[in-house]
Structures are given as C-alpha cells and as structure tokens.
Simulated assay, not measured.
Amino acid sequence: MATFLYARVSTSEQTLDHQKTQAEKAGFQFDHVIADQGVSGVSVLMRDRPEGKRLFDMLRAGDTLVVRWVDRLGRNYADVIDTIREFMRRGVVVRTVINNMTFDGSTADPMQMAVRDAMISFMAASAQAQVEATKEAQKAAIEALKAKDDGTYKGRKPSFTRAAYETVVNLLGKNASVSEIAQASGISRQTVYRIKENPAAAEKALALWSL
C-alpha cells in the first residue's frame, strides 16, 4: 500500500511546493508525488491530464490518494464525482488536506453510503461554484480593462518563454511529436497544441508581454 500526493499546478498560488508543504504540515507523508503542470482545471478531464493518466494507472486497492481539495480531481462537478467514485471502486482511499476529509468504499451501510455520497456531491458542487465565480470575476475585470481602450489589456500572460516558443516552432517544422516537443521545450503538451494550432497568436502574446 502506498500514499500518493496529486497536485495540479496552474497558477503562481498553486505551486507544487506550496501544496506539498501544506500537506506535510497536516501530517501526511508520501511515497509518490505526482503533479500536472500548466493544466487548466476547467478544460481538461482528470483522466486526460498527462499525469492524471499516470495516476489512474498507478493506484491500486489499499492505496491512499491525498489532494489539497476535491477540485484537484476534476474540471467540474461531474468530473470530480466520477473520479472519486472510480477511485473508491478500486479500493483507493481519498483524503483531502483541507478539513481532513476521508472518502473510501469500505462501508456497506446504505445510510452511511448516502451521507458519504451527499458530502462528496456537496463538496464537488462547491468547488465548481467557486471556479465559476472566479471566472465571472476575471471576465468582468477583463471587460473593464478592454473598455478603457488604452492598451492596458494584454490578455493572459503566456505560460512559455520565447526560447520555448522557438523550440516548439523549430521542432514542429521537423515533424517531431507533441510529446517530444513538450519534453524538449519544458512546457506542457496542451501548450504545445495551442502553439501548433495558432502560432501567430502565441507570437503576438509574447510580443505584448515583451517575453
């Protein structure tokens, strides 16, 4: 039996070190630490994330999966619910750092199962509501900046450097695979796909941010 920490790293506030330190302070120790870098939690299903796939392959009955909060385990309500239930079916214990919640499939009592499932549903719904509220706040802020029409709004800061961009473009020209390019450039496969689909937009973003 092994203990896994799974982290999703998509913003400066969600660094791997921060999530790991927070978990360790809560008393958790890990045999494996798995982190998805630069993956948007609202755009990619848990099992489709690069390291999410590896986590699904590695977890076995009796293992414990530690996450900062349930929103680490899915892009929305349905994804979080499906992921937790799949892990419980496999005999994996899911624990959260925040509030020290534990979810497993050990109980066979219908009432206890109902309470457990209701709590999972409530937490997943709360996580999605928070994401949607954040998106609306960001949208409002962007619209306010656009309304100024003074060049303040530059769009989202690129998650890649100019050197990484040039590496991607160069390797795309050599017909390298997305995985090979991601490894060579040090950026995520999703970012490579975005550059591949619209290199002009990527170049413009770099120029706007002077990267």
Rank of each mutant, 00 (worst) to 15 (best):
E132A: 06
A205I: 03
F103E: 04
L65S: 08
D36G: 09
L65R: 08
P199M: 00
K204N: 02
F122C: 09
A147N: 03
Y77T: 07
G52S: 03
D150Y: 06
M1E: 07
R68C: 11
T191N: 08
V80P: 10
S121M: 14
T64I: 09
R72W: 01
D36R: 07
R75E: 05
E166N: 13
A23R: 06
Q19E: 06
P110Q: 05
A2G: 02
G41V: 05
N99W: 14
E203F: 00
A78L: 15
S106I: 13
S159D: 11
E24L: 06
S12K: 15
Y6P: 09
E197M: 10
L5E: 04
K25Q: 15
R189W: 09
D150N: 12
R60M: 09
R95M: 12
R89Y: 10
L206V: 03
K53P: 01
K196C: 04
T3A: 12
A182N: 08
I120A: 05
R194G: 02
L16R: 09
A184I: 05
D104K: 07
K25Y: 14
I187H: 00
T167P: 07
Q14F: 04
I98H: 14
G105R: 07
F56E: 06
V168R: 11
M1T: 13
S126T: 11
D149C: 01
G62H: 02
F103R: 02
R162H: 08
A114F: 13
D31G: 10
D36Q: 08
S43Q: 11
D117C: 08
A78I: 13
P199E: 01
I181N: 07
R85M: 12
S185Q: 06
R68H: 15
A202M: 05
V42Y: 04
T161L: 02
I142M: 13
I81G: 02
E143I: 12
F122R: 13
N170A: 10
S179W: 12
V67E: 05
Q130V: 12
D31W: 06
A61Q: 01
K204A: 08
I84D: 02
R194F: 03
H32Y: 15
Q19S: 08
D149E: 05
E51M: 14
A118K: 12
D36K: 08
S106G: 15
R156I: 01
H18F: 15
V42A: 11
V131W: 15
T161V: 04
A163F: 11
K174T: 06
A205W: 00
V168E: 00
Q138K: 09
K139I: 03
E13H: 14
P50G: 02
I98V: 14
G151L: 07
A184H: 08
A127H: 04
R47T: 13
I181T: 02
V66L: 04
R194Q: 09
V67H: 04
T107M: 12
N99S: 14
R68S: 15
I120N: 10
T11P: 03
T102I: 10
A184V: 06
